Amino acid sequence: MTTTPDFLVDALGHQHAPAPAARIVCLVPSITELLCDLGLAGKLVGRTGFCIHPRDVVAAIPKVGGTKDVNIEKIRKLAPTHVVVNIDENAKPTVEELAGFVPHVVVTHPNTPRDNVPLARLMGGIFGAEEAAARWCLAFEAEYAALHASPKGPARTVLYCIWQDPWMTVSKDTYIANMLAELGWRVPDLGTDRYPRFAWSQALVDGLDAVLLSTEPYRFTEEHTDALEKQLGIPVVLVDGEMMSWYGSRALAGLRYLQTLK
Results as ranks from 00 to 15, higher is better:
residue 91 A to L: 15
residue 196 P to K: 08
residue 150 S to N: 04
residue 74 K to N: 11
residue 8 L to H: 10
residue 152 K to Y: 00
residue 53 H to C: 03
residue 193 D to C: 04
residue 51 C to K: 04
residue 150 S to Q: 13
residue 149 A to E: 14
residue 172 K to G: 09
residue 167 W to R: 04
residue 138 L to M: 11
residue 176 I to K: 03
residue 77 K to L: 12
residue 47 R to W: 08
residue 185 W to H: 15
residue 243 M to Q: 14
residue 151 P to G: 13
residue 232 L to T: 02
residue 124 G to E: 07
residue 204 L to M: 09
residue 120 A to H: 10
residue 6 D to N: 05
residue 105 V to A: 05
residue 256 R to A: 12
residue 207 G to V: 00
residue 187 V to E: 12
residue 6 D to C: 04
residue 159 L to H: 07
residue 113 P to S: 05
residue 158 V to T: 08
residue 128 G to W: 07
residue 189 D to R: 06
residue 212 L to S: 06
residue 61 I to Y: 11
residue 151 P to M: 10
residue 262 K to H: 15
residue 89 E to K: 06
residue 159 L to A: 05
residue 214 S to E: 09
residue 125 G to F: 11
residue 208 L to M: 03
residue 95 V to Q: 13
residue 103 P to L: 04
residue 162 I to G: 06
residue 61 I to F: 09
residue 78 L to F: 07
residue 130 E to A: 14
residue 19 A to R: 12
residue 202 Q to W: 12
residue 166 P to I: 07
residue 219 R to A: 15
residue 129 A to P: 08
residue 252 L to A: 06
residue 65 G to Y: 13
residue 195 Y to I: 02
residue 250 R to W: 01
residue 64 V to H: 11
residue 24 I to R: 01
residue 163 W to L: 02
residue 197 R to S: 13
residue 44 L to G: 01
residue 245 S to L: 08
residue 194 R to W: 14
residue 202 Q to E: 15
residue 251 A to E: 11
residue 93 P to T: 11
residue 259 Q to C: 02
residue 201 S to A: 06
residue 140 F to E: 07
residue 4 T to H: 00
residue 212 L to I: 13
residue 165 D to R: 14
residue 35 L to K: 01
residue 212 L to T: 00
residue 261 L to R: 06
residue 136 W to F: 15
residue 14 H to I: 00
residue 206 D to F: 03
residue 206 D to S: 13
residue 44 L to P: 05
residue 16 H to Y: 07
residue 63 K to V: 12
residue 15 Q to C: 08
residue 92 K to I: 08
